[in-house]
Amino acid sequence: MDQWPTTEDIARAEDEIVLPELTEQTAYALGRRAVEAGLEQGLPIAVGVWRGERQLFHCALPGSTRDNNEWLRRKGRVVMRFERSSLYVARLCKDQGTSLAEKFALPSSRFAAAGGAVPLHVRGAGVVGWMGVSGLPQLEDHRFVMRILREHLDARR
């Protein structure tokens, strides 16, 4: 984990990603962009975009498994609980030598502090949802989602 970014670096990068809105169309555009990139690279991932408790987009690519869907949900619950990425919370727990279960009494059957789910900040509204990927090593999951979000915002400029 020493090669991972610090919590400060992770938070800074997350804070740079601010969407103007999170509509069904936005979720579809984000999800489609992730699916196209995943297919191009032959990645065995599941992709999800959520607004609050409502899933707006889901796609499981070839090679992904049922477990990837469950990992997505568990990582997403971490995002909605802490309003930070699941990687940030994983790094925070690692730095403090603890786990979600020990520090926050959160069951691992419902919460996963593992990279791959990123908060979706909307200008003027704060964190309203999350986007996640599962199927790669956790740091790669996180980087993939961050790249997709940056590409989406760059295309809008």
Rank of each mutant, 00 (worst) to 15 (best):
S108R: 14
R147P: 01
E140M: 11
W130E: 12
Q25L: 13
M146Q: 09
R73L: 15
Q55E: 15
Q55P: 03
V133M: 06
A155C: 02
P62C: 04
V35C: 14
P20K: 04
R77G: 03
V122F: 07
E151P: 02
P44I: 00
R150C: 02
S85W: 06
W130D: 08
L72M: 13
F104I: 12
A29L: 11
G38R: 03
R33M: 04
K75I: 10
A27M: 08
C93H: 02
W4L: 13
Y28L: 15
H142L: 11
M146F: 04
S134T: 06
S85Y: 00
K103N: 06
M146T: 00
L30T: 05
H152C: 05
G115M: 08
R147T: 13
R77Q: 14
Q41A: 11
S134M: 03
T6K: 10
R51K: 14
E14M: 08
E24S: 12
A112F: 07
E24Y: 13
L43C: 02
L72V: 07
T65S: 07
R54C: 05
S109D: 12
F111T: 00
G135F: 00
W130A: 11
G76I: 07
R66Y: 10
G135I: 01
P119L: 09
M1T: 13
S64M: 04
R73S: 05
S85T: 04
P107G: 05
D154N: 07
L22T: 06
H121K: 15
I45G: 01
A34L: 13
A37L: 13
G116E: 11
R33T: 01
V49Y: 01
Q25A: 12
F111R: 02
R91V: 14
R123H: 08
R54N: 12
R110T: 02
M131I: 07
Q138S: 03
Q96L: 12
D67S: 13
L139I: 14
A105K: 15
G31M: 02
A125N: 08
R32T: 10
V145E: 07
R66H: 12
M131F: 11
S86E: 05
A101I: 13
L87C: 01
G126Y: 15
M131P: 04
I45P: 02
A113S: 08
V18H: 12
A105V: 11
L72K: 09
A60P: 03
E102C: 05
P20I: 11
A37W: 07
